[in-house]
Design a protein around this nucleic acid. Structure first.
Length: 521
RNA sequence: GGCCCCAUCGUCUAGAGGCCCAGGACACGAGCUUUUCAAGCUCGGUACAUGGGUUCGAAUCCCAUUGGGGCCGCCA
């Protein structure tokens, strides 16, 4: 039996913006594949672009992955056998390989300016040809090079692309081939020339004092790192398909083994173009802050371009790992379905235990200005009243099945966090009933409330009396509707009896009295 | 424009030549339940892009067309 190659995959985001859900999906698929194959999941930060990369975005990526439960085996924080895992810390490696390519004549310095490059491309395009680099600096003489350097032109290292076909077998799409004659020499590193003593010593610069500083560019750093980190499978977005032949060529030139490739379908916006900020929220963080649960995010993401077959709809991370296979990944892009996410989230929200619901919902009540932390618990901002966890849990449980996301909880429960709700007296009467009837009904309700002891102010006891009062009047609405309004100040709410039971005798009586007073005016 | 990729309900999808005049879910519509709102239950409409092949038989295989998308940076 030949030894099975160990599976090592990487998720390699660049921290140049908020952690995008498309990237989160790529991370998920890498993670699922790694775990399913008993392999290793590596997190590598591609921050070669110092201008645009930031530690803040990197932190956001780590936080996002952690939130989703996608734990990496090797990464910038935890280290690993192939550390460091941040490209900005791996410069010596890139430089070594860049010099190797230079020595073999497979890379060269290009001094073309942006304008020149643009002109070359325009020229090719006008002739209907593929817009690629012309190869103008391929055969520069030493003298020409020196001249450009003296002019202070900045240089870039280009890879000399052989004019032939390159193909690879994509694990999702099958064979894909490219005619590299149409591609042109692509850049692999920016090169800065350091001449620390040149100007100071009266122009007497010598070669010995000069040094070249290479900053690697994407296609090059990826190839070097995937090789050095022993990556076996590269699973990434479809937008990288055209980078693959370039990377293959680089691997060949450097004598590296090639990983397997799998290109994932893109996540699309409603207009079927690549999901981007113009389609709305795209950062994982934004969804988290809007009150979506990790389980719901995991499911919506997993089912975008993949499914376990059959009619199963919601899977845990463990089940996803068990079921995952690249063979079941689609080729076509998938439109992000926000409605479905909300439905999924509602399902997960309902499944939450009271303690868990409390834990994740309270921050939303706090940020809405309804509650504030106090004495190890929470206090109602408007009334100053201290709230017990069990009271809060009861409040939350009441609305648990009514919200699609946690950010809705404040608006839904607001009436619990005021002294007496504010509303128009005209809201109190039930369909076609007058104020008199309504007041009479509420007074009857008041009598029931009065009769139920505070210690036993339960839904059971309340229903008994209240429903009897309603039955006498032949229509539950005439009693329950004004009671709802008195208690909540609104026309849509959970069962007023349940609300009363949570509020307790005193508050219920107070709100009822306020309603009766309103009806007298 | 060049190259590459893709194609089942509005959307996510099941479907690996007969089980499919195409199934599930979200959304939508109607009804039931009902004190309101949700939820729940029942029912409903809507899809194999088109045209050619291959085959006894095609949503499934092949080709073309059409349509959509991605990439063409000294970004990743």
């Amino acid at each position: 039996m030949p030894e099975q190659k160990q599976v090592r995959v990487r998720f390699a985001p660049s921290p140049t913006g908020s952690f995008h859900i498309g990237n989160a999906r790529t991370a998920l698929f890498n993670y699922l594949f790694a775990r399913h194959e008993d392999g290793t999941f590596v997190l590598r930060i591609e921050d070669t672009d110092a201008e645009r990369s930031s530690g803040e975005f990197e932190a956001e990526i780590l936080a996002g992955l952690t939130w989703l439960g996608l734990h990496w085996d090797e990464g910038p924080d935890s280290g690993g056998p192939y550390a460091p895992y941040r490209q900005s810390e791996r410069r010596t490696s890139y430089e070594e390989y860049a010099r190797r390519l230079l020595a073999k004549g497979q890379a060269y310095f290009c001094y073309c300016t942006e304008e020149e490059l643009e002109a070359q491309k325009q020229d090719l395009a006008s002739r209907g040809e593929s817009p690629r680099y012309s190869g103008r600096c391929r055969n520069l003489t030493e003298a020409e090079r020196a001249k450009f350097q003296r002019e202070g032109r900045s240089a870039v290292l280009r890879f000399q692309v052989p004019e032939r076909e390159v193909s690879f077998k994509d694990l999702i799409r099958g064979k894909i081939s490219f005619d590299m004659a149409l591609v042109g020499d692509f850049s692999i590193a920016k090169v800065a020339l350091n001449r620390p003593t040149a100007l100071q010593s009266g122009g007497q610069a010598t070669r010995a004092t000069e040094s070249l500083e290479f900053s690697p560019l994407y296609n090059f750093s990826v190839v070097v790192d995937d090789f050095e980190m022993r990556i076996s499978h590269v699973i990434r977005g479809e937008d990288h398909i055209s980078n693959t032949p370039k990377q293959l060529l680089l691997q060949e030139a450097l004598g590296f083994s090639c990983p397997e490739y799998a290109h994932l379908p893109l996540i699309l916006g409603p207009d079927r173009s690549k999901l981007s900020s113009r389609h709305g929220a795209t950062s994982l963080k934004a969804y988290r802050e809007d009150g979506f649960l990790a389980g719901a995010m995991l499911n919506i993401l997993a089912f975008l371009g993949w499914n376990p077959g059959g009619t199963r709809e919601m899977l845990s991370l463990e089940e996803l790992i068990k079921e995952f296979s690249l063979a079941r990944v689609h080729k076509a892009g998938a439109v992000f379905n926000a409605n479905r996410l909300e439905w999924l989230n509602a399902q997960y929200l309902r499944a939450l235990a009271p303690e868990a619901l409390l834990e994740c919902a309270v921050p939303f009540l706090v940020s809405a200005g309804l509650l504030q932390p106090a004495d190890g618990g929470y206090r109602i901002v408007k009334t100053g009243e201290q709230m017990s966890d069990s009271y809060l849990q009861a409040v939350l449980r009441l609305e648990q099945g009514r919200m699609k996301k946690l950010s809705e909880i404040a608006a839904l429960t607001e009436f619990f966090f005021v002294d007496v709700p504010d509303y128009d007296a005209n809201l109190l009467p039930w369909k076609g009933r007058g104020k008199e009837d309504t007041r009479e009904a509420l007074e009857a309700v008041g009598a029931v409330i009065e009769a139920v002891p505070a210690e036993d102010f339960t839904v059971g006891r309340l229903s008994e009396g209240l429903l009897a009062v309603a039955a006498e009047r032949g229509d539950r609405g005439i009693v329950l509707w004004p009671l709802r309004v008195a208690l909540t100040g609104r026309e849509a709410s959970p069962d007023p009896i349940e609300i009363a039971a949570i509020l307790g005798k005193d508050k219920t009586a107070k709100r009822l009295q306020a309603a009766i007073t309103k009806l007298r005016d």
